[in-house]
Simulated scan of single mutants.
Amino acid sequence: MLEQFPPSDAVAFAAAAERHGFSGTMATDPFQPWLPRLGQASHVWSVLGAVGAATRGDLGPGVTTPTFRMHPAVVAQASATLASMYPGRHWLGIGSGEAINEHVVGAYWPEPPDRIARMFEAVELIKKLFAGSIAGRDVRHAGPSFKMESTRLWTMPKTAPEIYIATAGPVTARRAGRVADGLITQSGPSERLEVLLARFADGARDGGRDAATMPRVLQLHLSWAETDEEAMRNALAEWPIAGMRFGRGDIRSPFELEQLARTVRPEDFAGRMVVSADPDQHRAEIQRHLDLGFDRIYLHNVGRNQLEWLEVFGREVLPGLRP
């Protein structure tokens, strides 16, 4: 979480994670932190370049929004550059955005259906630019939300980065199955996730593909510490948004969210995020999502105790997981 740590620390934690058995890095793309006390918001593409040099696993932004702050062509250039530097390791995660990061450019902030439509148009433009650039030809785009004059990416890997679409909605998941290379979502009740994966599989079949061969990616927030009490303190101080039972896509200021965070109580995390000192509880939660059909899970321990957590999970949690 680049909202929590200076970029140099984030790179060091990614390298430490790999030493303890983790195999890849997903980095957030903030312009502002969720809460003022988190204190950071570094540029994801700069950090991922350094992470790639310090690690050997996969890496990508989870997720970036190529529709407001950045034009899709600029995101495509950043992604192609990273993929050229680290062949076969980089994937591009794309979402429809949240106001806290995207409204800063002063554009009109639309309703969710419009944001989703813009996201899919951005994916169309990026795929078109990737394909044209690999073929050595210029392409252009003129759509409802974006225009791009005839151009190509002059730095382009031989194989385009895979594009994963982030969503929690079944309708968007089905459409993602048709046009994207994979799915990203966050943890939740098994029933909701089963529906999401089923709709993604339906969309893949619509596009003549098999979802079983496509990445199904999960972001899993958790709070581990040496005691249950410390784990709960970390959850309340660092990641109260896990206990918020309302959407936050339209919130524009960390200071506004800070006021809402004061209403979160320990019981609000029940069923939404495991808060525990017991590695077995965390392993069971990870395994539940693997059993549902996710094949790649990125873990975020919400506390500042990153090195201790990486050591404990590398020793006591990862070895006990079943694919």
Results as ranks from 00 to 15, higher is better:
Pro6Leu: 08
Val11Arg: 03
Ala14Lys: 06
Ala16Leu: 12
Ala17Thr: 09
His20Pro: 04
Ala27Pro: 15
Pro30Ala: 01
Ala41Glu: 11
Val51Phe: 03
Ala53Gly: 15
Arg56Phe: 11
Thr67Lys: 09
His71Thr: 13
Ala76Arg: 02
Ala80Asp: 00
Ala80Met: 03
Leu82Ser: 01
Tyr86Phe: 13
Leu92Ser: 05
Gly95Ala: 01
Glu98Asp: 10
Val104Asn: 07
Ala107Leu: 15
Pro112Glu: 00
Phe120Ser: 05
Ala122Gly: 08
Leu129Thr: 06
Phe130Cys: 07
His141Met: 14
Pro144Phe: 13
Ser145Phe: 15
Phe146Cys: 07
Lys147Val: 12
Ile165Ser: 05
Ala166Asp: 04
Gly169Val: 05
Ala173Asp: 09
Ala173Lys: 03
Arg175Phe: 14
Ala176Asp: 11
Leu197Gln: 02
Arg199Lys: 14
Phe200Lys: 07
Gly203Cys: 01
Arg209Ala: 13
Asp210Trp: 06
Ala211Gly: 08
Arg216His: 04
Ala225Gln: 14
Glu229Ala: 09
Met232Ser: 06
Asn234Trp: 08
Ala235Thr: 00
Leu236Pro: 05
Glu238Lys: 05
Trp239Cys: 07
Trp239Met: 14
Ile241Gly: 11
Arg248Tyr: 15
Asp250Ala: 13
Ala261Glu: 14
His282Ser: 02
Ile286Cys: 03
Phe294Ala: 00
Asp295Met: 01
Asp295Val: 02
Ile297Val: 10
Asn301Ala: 08
Leu307Pro: 06
Leu310Ile: 01
Val312Tyr: 10
Glu316Lys: 12
Val317Asp: 06
